[in-house]
Write a protein that binds this DNA or RNA. Structure first.
Lengths: 82, 82
DNA sequence: TTGATCTACCGACTATAGTCGGAGACCATA
DNA sequence: TATGGTCTCCGACTATAGTCGGTAGATCAA
């Protein structure tokens, strides 16, 4: 297995928290963000609850609509890890 | 569809170039990097050729073995985009 | 109450990330 | 000639990202 189970969940939940913070900060609902990113509303919910791990393209798409850079989302996620 | 085809390929090929540069800079073969990251050798090849898009966990795993931060890989990828 | 908004959760999907074994090409050094 | 190292490409898989339609709980306001 590539990214082993445990660490993977850590990353997913860390990113979920970062995403939720960034989204609420900019005042978008999950559904509004999903619409803006051309994603499904349930998927945003899954991401924020750490049940899915985004691909790189998803991170870029989200960051664009949230008015932040992709690397800032990743940096915040990385900080939350250790 | 979430990340639509065209932009997706751009991101994948941009990341591939960044990955290859970072890997050769640190003097690892694709196979050695794959082994260190617990991934498949063919998958590293696919990533570098832009045929696959990594998940966030994969970016973190790769960056760790390459001795760089995940956000630096993402930042370089983002720069190569526009 | 009723209605609107937001979110969590649910199957059951479809698309793609990621694995695995092998084949072939190129380039060194011997 | 080879033998080793590196990489590309190939099916054919398995695991998971991401979609879709619906239900339900909570909150707030009319």
């Amino acid at each position: 297995m590539a990214a082993t189970g445990k660490k993977r969940n850590q990353i997913a939940t860390a990113f979920g928290a970062v995403l939720r913070l960034a989204r609420t900060k900019v005042g978008l609902s999950q559904e509004a963000l999903a619409l803006a990113c051309d994603m499904d509303r349930t998927y945003i919910s899954m991401l924020e609850r750490g049940e899915r791990q985004p691909t790189l393209g998803t991170v870029f798409a989200l960051s664009e609509q949230l008015g932040v850079t992709a690397e800032s989302l990743v940096a915040q996620t990385g900080k939350a890890l250790h």
